[in-house]
Design a protein around this nucleic acid. Structure first.
Length: 221
DNA sequence: AAGCTAAGCAACCGCCGCTAT
DNA sequence: GATAGCGGCGGTTGCTTAGCT
């Protein structure tokens, strides 16, 4: 069997538009199906990731606010590297974003600590690796990074949090910018719309029903 | 202006758990 | 009950951008 070529690497605007369209059409669940039906040469996983981390209109973009930073610190001390869990508590932020933030944040922190430590005493360093002079810089950062908050996780608390999570699940805060502008442009310009629909996917070939003619793009948000 | 380094971010990989068959 | 397929998660990598020399 000839394996269909799978695209990797950065997503193009065209791919984004395609994905957004199909997610709105079929929902953000069956990613393998979406990947196939959309005609995107991407894996379901890749589609999901792109949606979750970038295209989802509920995402908040830009720098973390001090409140969010505090929340991340607090929750990480509680749960450790449970990024998706932490992300659920911070509307508009993804696990990937928080993870990246944490890494950067901790690297900075580790460097500051190291500076402090070396300025006070050459032998004093991180509390968890003070005796090992052979430990590398990277290892130091890693030790600092992995605070192991998981041990603090308690079953009772987890239950409680799960309940809270369920209750607050529908929190939706911010909308996304550029992709949606593109969608709006499409909405305004039906000729472009049609040409894209014609070229994007083999699915259109199967759709005898002209449902797309009256498709309301404004419901995309 | 050019080169270098660090920071930030997007995307991939591998593993695990859930679910349908 | 076994297993295959899929989605989700955490860890990691690599590219781009910003800042510094």
């Amino acid at each position: 069997m000839v394996q269909e070529e799978i695209r990797r690497g950065p997503w193009t605007e065209q791919e984004d538009l395609q994905l957004v369209f199909y997610v709105k059409l079929f929902g953000d669940r069956r990613w393998d199906f979406l990947a196939k039906v959309s005609g995107l040469k991407r894996t379901g996983k890749s589609c999901r990731l792109r949606w979750v981390n970038y295209l989802n209109p509920d995402l908040k973009r830009g720098k973390m606010t001090p409140q969010e930073e505090r929340l991340v610190l607090e929750l990480h001390s509680k749960w450790g590297n449970r990024w998706s869990r932490i992300a659920r508590k911070i509307p508009g932020r993804t696990d990937n974003e928080i993870k990246n933030y944490w890494r950067t944040h901790m690297r900075k922190k580790a460097q500051e600590q190291r500076k402090k430590a070396t300025s006070i005493s050459p032998s004093s360093s991180f509390s968890n690796c003070s005796s090992s002079s052979s430990i590398t810089r990277e290892e130091n950062e890693r030790n600092f990074y992995d605070t192991g908050g998981i041990e603090q996780l308690q079953v009772e608390e987890q239950k409680k949090d799960n309940d809270q999570e369920q209750a607050g699940e529908s929190m939706k805060v911010y909308s996304m910018d550029e992709i949606w502008k593109d969608i709006e442009l499409l909405e305004e310009n039906e000729t472009i719309n049609k040409s894209i629909m014609g070229s994007i996917s083999p699915l259109w070939d199967y759709c005898a029903d002209p449902m797309w003619k009256d498709f309301d793009w404004s419901t995309f948000r």
